[in-house]
């Protein structure tokens, strides 16, 4: 069943940070949340992850997944702990861990590391990794939870171009079996990988549509305050070119 938010709002004291009267998203697939700074992207993800209180209802699969089935990757993820990459990923199974690390724990960790091409880093300490490597490790940690719903706050912000493409390709294939909702800043990447885009502006829903519609200059320009152009590259992927601030 689809993900449906009804009369969904988040307040900080008296101030309303987010208000979505109605938002329906498919049950699986890769959904991009876009919008300028302060539009409410992180707030929406935090509220869906259950980390901030909200009013209104959220449903998915005739209810809402248990916390253990929601994988949320925050934007401020930097880890300064002296633990190995494998141990860090292992913490994704926090609730199931006993005093001894079992063969099954290890196999799951190895699989998650493999999936994000991190196996060679397994024994390296987290605080010795770059921001982008940490980000991928933490993504692997979330995948260890076999989430039904994966909420990612700018999962590619610290990654170089190659790893942005790799991670999004991986998320895209994972999204056949789960719902992946990611806040994205790079509109070209959003247009290329997302099945559906949600454009927020000042805490309200501007557009929820296929990328070709959501990224159209007529929609994008007033929200971002730019002059942009939507092009197609040689393999017919969308490319957003921003010419200047308006």
């Amino acid at each position: 069943m689809n993900l449906i938010l009804t009369d969904f709002s988040v307040h900080a004291g008296q101030r309303r940070l987010l208000h979505l009267p109605e938002l329906a998203l498919p049950a699986t697939g890769l959904i991009g949340i876009i919008g300028p700074n302060g539009a409410g992207k992180s707030t929406l993800l935090h509220a869906m992850a259950g980390l901030v209180a909200h009013a209104g209802t959220k449903t998915l699969d005739d209810g809402w997944p248990a916390p253990a089935r929601i994988g949320f990757l925050p934007q401020n993820f930097a880890v300064s702990a002296a633990i190995s990459v494998a141990e860090c990923v292992l913490l994704g199974r926090r609730e199931q861990l006993g005093w001894r690390v079992t063969t099954r724990d290890r196999a799951e960790v190895a699989r998650a590391l493999e999936m994000l091409d991190l196996s060679h880093l397994a024994g390296i300490r987290m605080d010795c990794l770059s921001g982008g490597q940490q980000q991928r490790v933490l993504l692997a940690q979330r995948l260890l939870r076999h989430p039904r719903l994966l909420l990612l706050d700018e999962p590619t912000s610290a990654l170089d171009m190659r790893h942005q493409l790799e991670v999004l390709t991986r998320l895209k294939s994972l999204s056949q079996g789960m719902l992946v909702i990611a806040a994205l800043h790079d509109l070209t990447l959003a247009g290329r990988f997302a099945d559906h885009l949600v454009l927020l502006e000042a805490g309200t829903l501007k557009v929820s549509a296929h990328p070709s519609k959501a990224l159209a200059p007529g929609v994008l320009n007033p929200v971002y305050g730019i002059h942009s152009e939507l092009l197609l590259d040689q393999s017919n992927h969308l490319v957003v070119v921003a010419h200047r601030a308006s």
């Binding site: 992850a49 702990a81 933490l138 940690q141």
Partner: peptide, 13 residues
């Protein structure tokens, strides 16, 4: 140990 990953990461677990 999870808390050592930082509050944000620990809470999201």
């Amino acid at each position: 140990t999870a808390l050592r990953l930082g509050d944000g990461n620990a809470a999201s677990l």
